[in-house]
Amino acid sequence: MQYQWDFGFLLQYKGLIGVGILYTLGFTIGTVVSGLVVGCMIALARLSNMRIATAVMTGIIEIFRCTPVLVQLVWVYYALPILTGIELSPSVAAFITLTLYGASFFGEIIRGGIISVDMGQWDAGRALGMRRHQLMGQVILPQAFRRMVPPLVNQAVLQLKNTSLLSVLAVPDLLYQGQLITSASYRPLETYTMIAVIYFIILFPLTRFAHRLEARMSH
């Protein structure tokens, strides 16, 4: 098959592509930050001795970990409004879903990092008379954080890839813009190749970074 590659036409869509990149990065950064905040709360609740909070949080985490993000997105956008009577815009529905989905994984990474710190460190901080938040802030989290960073970066990489699912709700992310360009230009090969290359250019340095962190941790 002789195919005449021609990427030149894509230049006229650079505005659309730019918007797509902004949405993809914006949703990634936004939901990683909000996911970390919610994930922290999940981790702390699960580490506390409050049985009910732990049970509720564990339930939420399992629901989000054991169903596909695509199903969650569609459910929150199409099904949740029927239950609650509150119409959500596609962006809001997407933001909520990705936040909770990310949080359920971030929370487990954070919890794992915290419980990996030696019990003797807790003893030492307590014996000095540290309050719970001082112990966390000065002793436990600085040590736990070093162990959490590589898996958190990996999860952020997954989070960025998951933003491509937003296209099903017509959120104008990178993939959705690609679909728009394809339907206008009838050139899916160049368009989707370019979309894939853009994802790669964003993510490759990030995964390298995670690898390097992991290598440094193992010393």
Binding site: D118, G120, Q121, D123, A124, G125, A127, Q138, V139, P142, Q143, R146
Partner: peptide, 11 residues
């Protein structure tokens, strides 16, 4: 308090 395993803060 002083512990068997020292428990210094490694960071």
């Amino acid at each position: 308090m002083v512990f068997q395993n020292f428990n210094l803060f490694p960071h």
